[in-house]
């Protein structure tokens, strides 16, 4: 992981200000069915390479962010506010 994360609100900040949650998956619709919910809660692509992950700027602006990064090189490609990502994908 990169030592710093480019928070869209606060700029490049040390990684330890942030808390990682895990894969940035979209929560299924309520009626999606048991299999979809199991997949969402438990299954992971766990890719080698490009990956999108939820990080919380806990000791900063307290916004949830979607960090796009590489799991092999640890390079961060982008960092966007999670609400904006949801708005775009919704």
């Amino acid at each position: 992981m990169a030592s710093r994360i480019p928070c869209p609100h606060c700029g490049l900040r040390p990684k330890e200000e942030f808390t990682v949650k895990g894969a940035a998956l979209q929560r299924p619709e309520a009626e999606a069915g048991a299999q979809a919910w199991h997949d969402y809660v438990y299954l992971r692509d766990n890719p080698r390479g490009a990956y999108e992950e939820y990080w919380h700027h806990t000791s900063g602006c307290r916004r949830w962010l979607v960090v796009a990064r590489n799991t092999v090189t640890h390079e961060v490609a982008s960092c966007r506010d999670a609400a904006e990502v949801k708005a775009v994908t919704a």
Binding site: H56, R63, W64, V66, A82, A83, V85, K86
Partner: peptide
């Protein structure tokens, strides 16, 4: 608090 913020910002920002 982190969890609620996650719900408010990432799950139901609307």
């Amino acid at each position: 608090m982190n969890h609620l913020e996650f719900c408010a910002q990432a799950v139901w920002p609307e």
